[in-house]
Design a protein around this nucleic acid. Structure first.
Lengths: 350, 350
DNA sequence: CCTTGCTTTTGGAACGATCCAAATTTACCT
DNA sequence: AGGTAAATTTGGATCGTTCCAAAAGCAAGG
């Protein structure tokens, strides 16, 4: 496993010291910009650094100083544009702060998650930003990351004995309110039979969104039909496949609140296949505002969560935590914004 | 810059050694699964490792062994789904091989690229997978990464004195052939006035695609109009904005080969705004086959490049290079596949 | 009991940086 | 010049691991 490549002899601090006849300690001071060292010697050392093409060995420094200059970013699905944007935001802030991002992608598998976390921990990250795979168990996660490394949980809750990791910081979207807003909007458009489409009941974000949907329906005195909640994987493909389930009952819905944009776009395709035109014959909303939501046909009403900004925020939160390791844990809930586009039409009376 | 977080006292190899009364060397042997150590002591040591919750310090080991267990992945635009998929593929393979991925995103800025590479180099990666920012200069890149760390150049060429980094491995798409296929397909559909839309002449991939387009046009004896090549940034927004340029001349094109899918999707929007229906009044093709290409209205004819598979391939190439550091450099050109969908209609005779 | 030849274990010196207390040089004042 | 304070510089120990040569333990054979 790994570790095969011997690195061609590199220039070290001692080489520089020897090269301009000072001690290693002095060179080290120059490198760290200490004011203790004399102007003149500093210049000589810096010249020598350039001349030999020195590159700092941060691993060695971190070993001695018992610090870390990396932060692990572990995502359940990097290929999803939502997380890709998120990762870009994280890396931007961490890079500016002088940290390097250790990437880990778990592909929604808890076994892989354990393996990835284990491997990353061996590199001693200063902190971990984790969007857990579906079904992640609190105790297992804690065993993998240990008790000393700060964790920022993003996007999802974990199951099991959550008391064990109650001290972790959290950054989550206001899923419930978002789904409520979408549902209220559809109700406002005049819809009565509204379904909740897609997602998997096992994931916390899905449960929260369903709760928001249910809340709005009940507040409006509208019933939730037996086939009013259809499960599907949170991707386009399965969303197309499960479409027929929506129309299995006798009173078909005229609108659907979808788990996320990918599902909504898949549902659009499925509707087309049934001869229904989304945005005219059927109203629907998404969640995330991924790039293609604005350009789909029709453009998708959805909830903006600005993933890049979330990434930046996550990075800032973990950096803050490193500054004050013992301050009490912080739970941040991100407000989401309803973007009304053409997909959420009023009901079509054919 | 970085390095703020002291790490809560960790369990070391010496702690284990003391805990079960053997030497550090023996514990080290156990950790590496050496056959030298006695069955019985191995069991004792392993028990103690578990008991104290030891986690291996790979940085220390790498320092002593002068090896590295990380590989840097530097991308010009992580937020682009194409690169996100690519990154997922890279991380998958590297993770399996026991390496950790150091992520760096440059946002298409050469200054940031220099900074990111500099910072990553300090962590001593065994190799670098680099998709350079537009306008990257060979000499500058070489200065940033040094001569000893192997580099795999992905997706783009670099400008300047390329002799300096001629020994780098390369993985590039067959841009020219792809664009030629798309152009030939449109010609086959009966189009005569075909434009090349989008991209920036400064990027090597754009030049190559234009070359393929030109080749096909010339082979068919078709002229390239003065406004036959329109520049725009390779994103949806600018593609919408520059749309009118296509129709500035007196003989408007009836079809366009677009630089990539994002541009094609933007152009679709722009066409709509002019009252033209893409796929009926105007034919167009993309490049990349991003997820939304299949579900746009109309579905987009494009060139499949399977970015995730490319990521896996890139990772495998750099791992091979680490195995044989001195074998001659390898230039891999990935064939691309034309996917015909509804956007590339025959000309519409209104 | 003493070799001889295994198998197993081990102390100490690396790796490339930083820390610390102490040594050296320079500057300033009487 | 002599003395003291401030400014610079420095040797060695150290971080957590691996390497290496040598030591120790052990069994069998004479």
């Amino acid at each position: 496993m790994g570790n095969t490549s011997p690195v061609g002899r590199k220039v070290t601090l001692s080489d520089i010291a020897a090269g301009c006849d000072v001690s290693r300690a002095t060179v080290s001071l120059v490198l760290r910009g200490s004011p203790l060292v004399n102007k003149h010697t500093r210049a000589r050392v810096e010249e020598e650094l350039r001349r030999q093409g020195y590159v700092y060995n941060r691993a060695a420094a971190n070993l001695r100083r018992r610090t870390s200059s990396s932060i692990a970013l572990v995502l359940n699905d990097l290929a999803n544009p939502f997380f890709a944007e998120f990762a870009a935001g994280v890396d931007e802030i961490l890079g500016n702060a002088g940290y390097v991002t250790l990437l880990g992608s778990t592909s929604e598998s808890t076994e892989r998650e354990q393996a990835v976390l284990g491997s990353l921990m061996e590199h001693g990250p200063a902190g971990i930003i984790l969007s857990p795979a579906e079904g992640s168990d609190a105790a297992q996660l804690l065993a993998a990351v240990g008790a000393t490394t700060p964790v920022l949980l993003f996007n999802r809750e974990v199951s099991g004995n959550t008391a064990a990791c109650a001290h972790w910081d959290r950054l989550t979207l206001d899923n419930q309110r978002g789904a409520r807003l979408a549902t209220e909007h559809l109700i406002g458009q005049g819809h009565q039979r509204i379904a909740f489409y897609g997602g998997h009941g096992g994931s916390s974000s899905c449960r929260q969104r369903r709760a928001g949907y249910t809340e709005a329906m009940q507040a409006a005195g509208l019933p939730i039909e037996p086939n009013g909640m259809v499960e599907c994987l949170p991707n386009r493909l399965d969303a197309v496949a499960q479409c027929e389930q929506l129309f299995a009952g006798n009173a078909a819905p005229t609108a659907a609140v979808c788990y996320n944009d990918a599902v909504a776009l898949g549902l659009m395709l499925g509707l087309h296949q049934r001869g229904l035109q989304p945005g005219r014959d059927f109203a629907l909303t998404g969640f995330d505002d991924i790039a293609e939501a604005a350009v789909s046909a029709p453009p998708l009403t959805t909830l903006a969560v600005t993933p890049r900004a979330r990434g930046r925020q996550a990075a800032e939160l973990i950096l803050q935590r490193l500054q004050e390791p013992s301050s009490s844990s912080r739970q941040t809930i991100v407000p989401v914004q309803l973007l009304v586009r053409a997909s959420s039409c009023p009901p079509h009376h054919a």
